[in-house]
Design a protein around this nucleic acid. Sequence first.
DNA 1: CCAGACGTTGTT
DNA 2: GTCTGG
DNA 3: CCAGACGTTGTT
DNA 4: GTCTGG
Length: 232
Amino acid sequence: MCGRLVVTSSTKQLLAAGGASRADDERPPRYNLAPTQDAPAVLNRDRAVLRWIRWGLTPRWARDLAAGARLFNARAETAAEKPSFRDALQKRRCVVLADGFYEWAHGETPKQPWFIHRKDGAPLLLAGLWDDWREPNGGREWTTFTILTTEPNDLIRPLHDRMPVILEASALETWLAPHPRPPADWHALFRPCPAELLTRRPVNPRVNSTAFDEPACLAPYTPPPRAQLELF
DNA sequence: CCAGACGTTGTT
DNA sequence: GTCTGG
DNA sequence: CCAGACGTTGTT
DNA sequence: GTCTGG
């Protein structure tokens, strides 16, 4: 699963990772980015632009924007059949750029967050779907997204039974194709990424609160002994 | 034909 | 939007 | 994802 | 418990 992101790379670095040439906005680094907030993404509609769009996919037919609040993940195995996602999987794909994400160990108390990121420090390419939603009565249009999930690799499995779909750079071209593609094309891309690509470390449970959004979120942290025993 | 429902995941 | 029910 | 709020109507 | 907000 994937419910909290870190975005610390510069705009220049994000553009390079996503293969885009310009960004629609300049934002400060985020150390604790939650659903309903904006994250940087490259949409297959316009691959030249890095856009900051709202996390939580609101289908275009939903009654209100809030409908997307809980649709921040989509199971890769079933997205092709779900009313909220199937059209987007065919036609509206995106890559979300993030330097890492947090996972909480399944059912532990107190809740212990872990930071997961690439060993080489490069931004992750997270497979996403997007949609446009227009406010009634001529209001503004929102673009929202969700992150696809798959089974975990060996690094994530001790923590959780789901992880985000992380794409290799070589898959960008395929994933961001502008035209419709059948669901059968995606099976190879929806595999968990190699565990060796990533690393993890526990971080301060202050990260649990979205109000804690600063460099200290990523600082080294040793869980109390009791929690350590429970975790391994 | 129209009306009305449909959210998803992951938990326990 | 698409699908189901009437 | 997690944290935090949520009482509810009727009456003065 | 469920829903909302970040």
